[in-house]
Design a protein around this nucleic acid. Structure first.
Lengths: 231, 231
DNA sequence: TGTACATCAGTGAACGCGCGTTCACTGATGTAC
DNA sequence: TGTACATCAGTGAACGCGCGTTCACTGATGTAC
């Protein structure tokens, strides 16, 4: 019965934490030096090689961890938001469009709130993610792109499962989910950097999501139904 | 009557071109070395200091040039698109919503096309811009952010001047213009990297812009008008 | 339970290298009179 | 128009430094019998 149950990877943890810290506060991952990270971790430069083949290897390890740390939790957040708004009372759009629109906007509101709470708890992961998504390392870029695709897939599925929108075109729904995912990640930077603007940022995110989904629905022939709901 | 009329800044030009080339094909600006850039430019490392104080100074020079090279041309593109679709035939939304919606979508189509043609002609500028917008240097980030804000301002103004949307809430219109500007820049990366997907990317951009603007209009009370136009 | 051995995470010294920056210098262009 | 001088873009050698990577080593933990 040891005090720590993760003894075997202590150094690895320290290195990952050090890299995250340095990335968030100063520079991009590819601009860090091995010795710098080791120094920050309080380890011998050499120890790096006990855990990672090279720098991209460390980057991938971080992304792997980040994905695990973010994907399921974010999925859970959206479910939680949906449950808190209405428990299984979904009706078809044609039956009651107004109820569904209001419910949809409320789920959006709650999800956005929970998302940004989550951002606040894991700022470094988001900073690194956004930075490397458009960064210089193709390895990191591809890994993060596929992570964003997975997120978009989740969002699209949730929109359907939760019946937040009338049944609409599949492919373009995914496009919209991609935009939502991407913009939420980018907005998370503002959220981290401008604490005094946080409530405005939440509202901006909600408006964006609502504009996008409503516009999408209108273009798919649900204009009249929505007009009625909004009147 | 000299052969070149820009003799005085020849080295500066070479250094800027070298940095652009290296950034686009390999790494982020902050990860480049001074000697590397000088080598690519075919100059003595030392010559760098004849033109720039430090690396951020070079970065800012590039952004300044890029902004000049992009902003007005992009503005002109949108005007050109509007003119090619209808010359001063604008009528109010209430008068003829269907005509205006179609005209609006046509302007979008043409503008998107012209934008991506422009991207194709200046890939390095876009790659560097997107990379550094979320990069590690605060100096570059702020400069690019303010450039993006200017673009968003232009887009919002054009939407109004060209009467592409009914008169709607100013502040949220700017939010939407920001999203459009940002997403167009991000899509430009896909456009550059995936030549075989170009027509799909154009369509995706059009759908995004239309969804956003239509959704925005609906939420501002123009639902019935738009429903009528779409029927 | 004890013993022998293998694996593993970490150390510290050493290497050669490319880096940013400095210095003193050069030759071409611009300017004052 | 010619002459003297200043400015400017560029050179090449030299510096000290932090870097990635290697080597041989250590002591703790895990495993076989």
């Amino acid at each position: 019965m040891g005090v720590s149950n993760k003894v075997s990877a202590k150094g690895k943890r320290l290195l990952i934490e050090a890299a995250l810290k340095l990335t968030a506060t100063t520079r991009s991952l590819s601009a860090l030096s091995l010795r710098e990270v080791a120094r920050e971790a309080g380890l011998n430069p050499n120890t790096f090689y006990r855990h990672f083949k090279n720098f991209d290897d460390l980057g991938l390890a971080i992304i792997r961890e980040m994905t695990q740390e973010l994907r399921q939790p974010l999925r859970d957040l959206r479910r939680e938001a949906a449950d808190s708004v209405s428990k299984g009372t979904a009706v078809s759009w044609q039956q009651n469009p107004k109820l569904n629109l209001l419910r949809s906007m409320e789920v959006t509101r709650v999800t956005v709130k929970l998302f940004f709470d989550y951002v606040e708890d894991h700022p470094n992961a988001f900073i690194l993610g956004v930075r490397e998504l458009h960064g210089a390392s193709p390895v990191m870029r591809n890994a993060l792109r596929s992570m964003m695709n997975d997120f978009a897939q989740d969002i699209a599925e949730d929109i359907q499962i939760l019946n937040l929108l009338p049944e609409v075109n599949q492919a373009t729904l995914l496009d919209i989910a991609e935009v939502i995912g991407r913009e939420m990640f980018l907005l998370s930077m503002d959220y981290i950097e401008q604490p005094e603007q946080r409530s405005q940022i939440c509202e901006k995110a909600q408006r964006l999501i609502t504009s996008l989904t409503v516009g999408h629905a209108v273009l798919n022939g649900y204009g009249p139904v929505l007009s009625e709901a909004l009147s």
